[in-house]
Amino acid sequence: MTLRPDQWDLLTTLAQTPSGWVAEGPTDEGRRRRATAVRELAPEGLCELASDQLLQKLRDHDGRRPAWAARILPDGQPVLRYRELHIASATGELPPRPPVPAGIDLTGSEVDVLRRIVALAPLLPSARTQALADALAHAMPGTPGNHWVVPANAEHLDTIEAALRLQTLTGASTSTSYHCSVRKHRNSHEPPVRLTHDAPGT
């Protein structure tokens, strides 16, 4: 199901009252359309419809029972937020982000490589994928042009570099990502980052 504009409008209205119920009576065509919209949103788990018993308690000051009442559910909030970010990203107007810890700036294709290696982790038991997964879990959109900022401590940087090295060694990519990473984050006289947890000879 893809939400229609009227359903987005209704979900936004419900989100503006996150701790209470939004109730409406059947007084005009617009409200009848919203009643249809809310009944379609409820099965998606985005909002909750009030029971008949609760509707009795939500009568207005004239004693009129609302035709329906609904409130947003937890799943509704990230749906609204993701839509907002998606629209902002498409227009190049992403909202201000919280400060990002020191990390590494990667292209979208580089992040795809890292995610592929994490996805293959069960088949690469000795590879250093856990710290890589931890770093990717906090990746955020960075500079315009399909870039990502991956917050990374020293261990994270090592595992990112190891993943890019693995990609280069297997010839799976002609990208210069690994060599760029070495130049940025490693002294030229240091040995290549290890691909596995095990020490040599063990």
Rank of each mutant, 00 (worst) to 15 (best):
L58S: 02
D60F: 09
D60N: 15
D62T: 07
G63P: 09
G63L: 13
R64Y: 13
R65D: 01
P66H: 05
P66Q: 04
A67S: 12
I72Q: 01
L73M: 12
L73W: 00
P74L: 08
P74D: 04
P74H: 08
D75A: 15
D75Q: 13
G76W: 00
P78H: 08
V79S: 03
L80V: 02
L80D: 05
R81M: 11
R81K: 09
Y82C: 03
R83Q: 12
R83I: 03
E84M: 12
L85S: 04
H86P: 00
I87E: 14
A88L: 10
S89I: 01
A90Y: 07
G92N: 06
G92M: 03
G92F: 10
E93L: 14
L94K: 02
L94F: 07
L94Y: 07
P96Q: 08
R97V: 05
R97D: 05
P98N: 10
P98A: 13
P98V: 05
V100P: 05
V100F: 09
P101M: 10
P101W: 12
A102H: 11
A102S: 10
A102F: 09
G103P: 02
G103F: 07
I104S: 09
I104N: 03
T107Y: 03
T107H: 06
G108C: 11
G108M: 14
G108L: 14
E110V: 10
V111P: 04
D112A: 15
R115Q: 13
I117F: 09
A121P: 04
L124Q: 06
L124W: 06
L124T: 00
P125T: 03
P125N: 06
S126L: 15
S126M: 12
A127F: 15
R128G: 00
R128Y: 04
R128P: 01
R128D: 02
R128F: 04
T129A: 09
T129R: 00
T129H: 04
Q130E: 11
Q130L: 13
D134V: 07
A135C: 15
L136G: 04
H138Q: 13
M140L: 13
P141D: 00
P144D: 04
P144S: 05
N146K: 14
H147W: 15
W148C: 02
W148L: 03
W148N: 01
V149N: 09
V150F: 09
V150C: 05
A152V: 03
A152C: 11
A152T: 01
N153V: 02
A154N: 09
